[in-house]
Design a protein around this nucleic acid. Structure first.
Length: 226
DNA sequence: GCATTAACCACAG
DNA sequence: CTGTGGTTAATGC
């Protein structure tokens, strides 16, 4: 498999930079880079997990089949690991990851990854920090979701996309309205109504999939007041 | 009661 | 896939 060498890779995560040259070489010999198209499944809930997936470029969604419908757990921007909890916490994937745009993903052999954690404290520490940050974000979002009403949730999600994922007021929204509904726990009709309401109130501008946040302060208020 | 919120259904671009 | 209208149920003055 033709691939770029890990040590020359410019999209290393924080943790990988604490690997020794020898460890880096082992990593190179035990990982492959795979490209995905928009919409492709990267790994699937219910399937056996033998690799750690690292999102090298692009953007992906983490999602789970719930008892009633699909639930989008998180949107992930490269560079980031995609499924550490499901890869290390269980042999079977507890959730799926799918590409929201063209992406490239490095799959790292799980036993090698485990070895790196055992043998390199700094590497392990960086991984733990990433897991902790994700957990804090998740707690934050689940608390919001159980207490905010849907306009607040949608405002929060738009702000999060703008600030954390795209780092711009103007961005191409990567989900369909139905998927946004799956993300905040509401129906696609409600999403459609809230978005057109925000648009007619001049809080955002929508043209196709492009969203431009015009009145960020008001959007923040809506997000905070629920 | 009356208002608000949001889900579900249907139908049309 | 999206936008909208009608209907219905739950909840809160």
């Amino acid at each position: 498999m033709l691939m770029q060498k890990c040590k020359d890779c410019t999209t290393k995560c924080g943790a990988a930079s604490s690997l020794s040259p020898e460890q880096m070489e082992v990593m190179e010999n035990n990982s492959v880079e795979v490209h995905f198209r928009k919409g492709d499944n990267i790994f699937r809930q219910g399937a056996l997990s033998l690799n750690i997936a690292f999102l090298k470029s692009g953007i992906a969604k983490i999602h789970m089949h719930g008892p009633a419908r699909e639930k989008i757990l998180r949107i992930v921007r490269a560079p980031s690991y995609l499924g550490l909890p499901t890869s290390l916490g269980d042999k079977i994937n507890q959730f799926s990851a799918s590409a929201l745009a063209d992406t490239s993903v490095c799959f790292i052999d799980i036993s090698l990854f485990r070895m790196l954690i055992y043998n390199n404290g700094k590497f392990a520490y960086e991984i733990i920090v990433e897991l902790c940050q994700n957990e804090l974000n998740d707690y934050q979002r689940y608390t919001s979701q159980s207490q905010k009403q849907m306009t607040g949730m949608i405002a929060e999600t738009l702000l999060c996309m703008s600030e954390k994922i795209f780092k711009d007021s103007k961005f191409i929204f990567p989900l369909t309205q139905s998927e946004l509904g799956d993300m905040v726990g509401t129906s696609r009709e409600s999403v459609s109504r809230v978005l057109s309401e925000f648009s007619s109130d001049k809080i955002i501008e929508i043209s196709g999939k492009e969203i431009n946040i015009i009145n960020r302060d008001l959007l923040k208020q809506i997000s905070e007041k629920g």
